[in-house]
Amino acid sequence: MATVILVRHGRTTANASGMLAGRMPGVKLDEVGQQQASFAGERMKDLPVHAIVSSPLERCRQTAKAIMQAQRPPLTLVTDKGITECDYGEWQGRQLRDLAKEKLWATVQSQPSAAEFPGGESLAAMQARAVATVRRHDALVESAHGAGGVWVAVSHGDIIKSVLADALGMHLDLFQRLNVDPASISVVRYTGSRPYVLATNTHAGDLSWLAAKPTRKGRGSSRPADAAVGGGAGPSAAP
C-alpha cells in the first residue's frame, strides 16, 4: 500500500498551559505552534504529496494548511472525524496536574486498553477508529497513485501513538512508551505483508527521500514488499 506521514498539530495555547483540550472548540496554535507547522511543511516541500487529511479540530486544520502552502501543485484539504482527538469526556478542559491525581490516571499510564474516560470514549475505541481511518485513506491513495503514493494525516498525540503502536505490532498497553511531540513527523509505509515504521517523532530533516522511484510505466513503486535481511541499503537520498 502507500506511505502515510503522520503529523501532530503544532503547539497550542492549551499545550503551553498544561490543559487537556480534547475536542474543545477554539483551541488554536500559539506563535511557536505556527512556526512549527510551517517548518513541517518545509520538510515536505520537495516531496510530492498526493493527499492531505486532517482532524476537523482547528489546531490540526491550521497545521495542515501550513503544510499545504509548501506543496506544488496545491492540495485540497480533506477532514475526517475518524482521526479527531480522543473524546476525553469529563477530563476535557482540566489541568493535567489535577488529572494526575485521579485514580484513572494510573490505568491510562499502565493499562491503556482498560481505560475509558468518564462521559467519553475508551482508548481502545479511539485506536480502532483511528487505525481503520488511516488504513482506509491509505488504500484510497494507493488505488489512485500506486504503491508509491505518499499522503499526510494531521492529527493528535494519542491518535498518532495508537496508529504507530498498531503498525509496530505493539499491544495498546505499551503505547505510552511512544512519544509524539507537537508538529513532530512519524512515517508508516503499508504493504501487503506488513506495515513498516520508517520514522517516529522526528523534528528535522528533508523528507524527499520518501518519494518512490517510478516504474517503467511511470506509475507505482520500485520498493520491495519484503524486509531486507541485514537491513538493506536504505534510500538513495539521505534523509
Rank of each mutant, 00 (worst) to 15 (best):
Glu58Val: 13
Val49Cys: 01
Ala212Ser: 15
Ala106Leu: 11
Pro224Asp: 03
Ala130Gln: 05
Leu198Met: 13
Arg219Thr: 08
Ser122Lys: 12
Val197Asp: 01
Glu102Arg: 14
Ala237Cys: 08
Lys65Val: 05
Ala132Leu: 14
Arg129Thr: 10
Met126His: 09
Pro224Phe: 02
Arg61Val: 14
Met1Phe: 04
Ala2Ile: 04
Asp206Lys: 06
Ser17Lys: 15
Arg216Cys: 05
Gly18Cys: 00
Gln109Asn: 09
Ala115Val: 00
Pro48Asp: 10
Asn15Tyr: 00
Phe117Arg: 07
Gly120Trp: 05
Gly119Thr: 07
Ile185Thr: 13
Thr76Pro: 01
Met19Trp: 02
Glu90Trp: 09
Thr107Pro: 12
Thr76Asn: 12
Pro112Trp: 02
Arg23Gln: 14
Arg129Glu: 09
Ala139Asp: 14
Val229Asn: 02
Ser113Asp: 04
Ala199Gly: 06
Arg135Asp: 03
Thr133Trp: 07
Ala37Ser: 15
Gly119Tyr: 06
Thr200His: 00
Gly10Glu: 08
Gln92Ile: 14
Asp173His: 10
Gly157Arg: 04
Ala125Glu: 13
Ala144Ser: 13
Val4Asn: 08
Val180Ala: 13
Pro74Met: 03
Leu123Met: 14
Gly146Ala: 05
Gly148Ile: 03
Glu42Ala: 11
Tyr196Pro: 00
Lys161Ala: 01
Arg8Pro: 00
Leu210Asp: 10
Ser186Asn: 11
Ser221Val: 06
Pro235Met: 12
Leu75Trp: 04
Gln35Ser: 12
Pro25Ser: 14
Arg8Cys: 03
Val188Asn: 06
Arg97Asn: 13
Thr133Ala: 09
Gln109Glu: 15
Val150Leu: 09
Ala2Glu: 06
Ala228Leu: 11
Asp226Ile: 09
Arg219Ser: 05
Ala128Asn: 07
Val27Lys: 02
Ile67Phe: 02
Thr76Ala: 14
Met44Trp: 08
Gly82Ile: 13
His145Met: 04
Leu164Gly: 01
Asn201Gln: 08
Ala227Val: 11
Val32Leu: 15
Leu77Glu: 14
Ala183Ser: 13
Gln109Tyr: 02
Thr3His: 10
Thr84Tyr: 13
Ala70Gln: 11
Thr191Glu: 03
Gln127Asn: 01
Val163His: 00
Asp173Ser: 11
Tyr196Ser: 04
Thr202Glu: 14
Leu104Gly: 07
Pro48Met: 10
Arg129Tyr: 07
Ala128Arg: 13
Pro73Asn: 00
Gly230Trp: 10
Arg219Gly: 03
Glu121Met: 12
Gln35Tyr: 06
Leu164Val: 11
Met170Arg: 01
His145Trp: 11
Gly205Trp: 05
Ala66Leu: 03
Ala165Leu: 01
Ser186Val: 10
Thr76Lys: 15
Lys28Asp: 11
Ala130Asp: 08
Gly220Leu: 08
Gln36Pro: 08
Lys28Ser: 11
Val108Cys: 12
Val7Phe: 13
Val152Thr: 04
Pro239His: 15
Ser222Ile: 10
Cys60Val: 01
Ala153Tyr: 02
Asp46Phe: 12
Pro195Arg: 09
Glu85Cys: 07
Val197Ala: 00
Ala167His: 01
Arg59Cys: 05
Leu174Met: 11
Ala199Asp: 08
Lys65Ile: 02
Ile160Lys: 04
Ala100Pro: 00
Trp91Arg: 09
Arg43Pro: 07
Glu85Ser: 05
Pro239Cys: 15
Gly157Pro: 00
Ala144Lys: 14
Gln176Met: 06
